[in-house]
């Protein structure tokens, strides 16, 4: 008897939690097909008529085509730079002994604990101004590149778990370091690279504060997160609830798609964060 009531209790808890966590997402998705009036006046859960025009309007008139394009460029760019920079460094630190190696590891792990918040962006912005990159896509991609942190440590731990005999054998055969790195280590790292790549992509796609600060005077460079939050602060006066929800869904859709396709990697990347 207690067994059955225990099971009922368990499942009630599991299902209610699942419903509460899904509710905001569902409300956003259903709302994105409603008219502004329907949203403000309150109506049934499902839209009366599915307003596909919302998406067309948001895409064209509210400039989301520009925002999405910018987001794609930043995310793809930052993913490539992050993975490249971190895998190069992780390989050297994991496989070579050189003066300063310990220091580097120490500094990189210390940096994970020192956070100056948004202050970091002020001097970084000045550096970009000096380099003439503060009004460019490239500047933003560089700023979004994670050079150390979790990505570095996950790759570092992964490369250390690869048998050393492989690259030693190649070295005896006269292979250069870069050859070993690109032809032996990187292919063996593929699963880890996928995981940190996804990590970097999610980070860049969802990033808000950094592009907000960097594109304040350049609306044409804004990614979707910044563009959407701007509607929240008024877009032509009246609150356009339906546009906000449609915009939010346009931002959520690619992540959702990736999540469904690569669920395992998403799970691994978070676990790697505590094991790495």
């Amino acid at each position: 008897m207690t067994r059955i009531s225990g099971r009922i209790l368990t499942w009630t808890f599991l299902l209610i939690t699942a419903a509460l966590l899904l509710l905001p997402i569902a409300l956003a998705m259903l709302g994105s097909f409603k008219t502004n009036q329907e949203l403000n006046a309150g109506s049934a859960l499902l839209p009366k008529v599915w307003q596909l025009e919302n998406y067309l309007y948001t895409w064209k008139e509210a400039k989301f085509s520009v925002y999405v394009w910018n987001s794609v460029i930043y995310s793809v760019g930052a993913t490539i730079t992050t993975v490249t920079v971190c895998s190069l460094a992780a390989y050297a630190v994991a496989r070579r002994s050189f003066p300063g190696r310990k220091l580097l590891l120490g500094v990189y792990s210390a940096m994970m604990f020192i956070h100056m918040g948004v202050l970091t962006l002020k001097p970084a912005y000045q550096i970009m101004v000096t380099l003439g990159l503060h009004k460019s896509v490239l500047g933003l991609i560089i700023m979004m590149t994670g050079a150390g942190g979790t990505t570095f440590f996950i790759l570092y731990a992964f490369i250390r778990s690869i048998s050393k005999e492989l690259d030693e054998a190649a070295m005896i055969d006269g292979a250069s370091s870069f050859y070993i790195f690109s032809r032996i280590i990187l292919p063996l790292c593929a699963p880890a690279l996928g995981v940190v790549g996804l990590f970097a992509f999610r980070g860049a796609w969802n990033n808000y504060i950094l592009p907000l600060v960097f594109t304040m005077s350049q609306p044409e460079l804004q990614p979707i997160t910044v563009g959407l939050a701007n509607i929240r602060y008024g877009f032509g006066g009246a609150v356009q609830s339906h546009l906000m929800l449609t915009g939010a869904c346009i931002s959520m859709l690619p992540m959702l798609l990736m999540y469904i396709l690569a669920n395992k990697s998403f799970v691994q990347m978070n676990v790697g964060a505590i094991k790495g």
């Binding site: 939690t17 966590l21 956003a28 999610r202 808000y208 509607i231 959520m252 999540y259 799970v267 978070n270």
Partner: peptide, 23 residues
């Protein structure tokens, strides 16, 4: 279930804040 519970973490905090503002 694990997939459902983890889903909220894949979305942008800023974007979800806009959604929550309407909620």
């Amino acid at each position: 279930l694990r997939g459902i519970y983890f889903m909220p973490t894949i979305f942008s905090t800023a974007v979800m804040a806009v959604v929550f503002y309407l909620i």
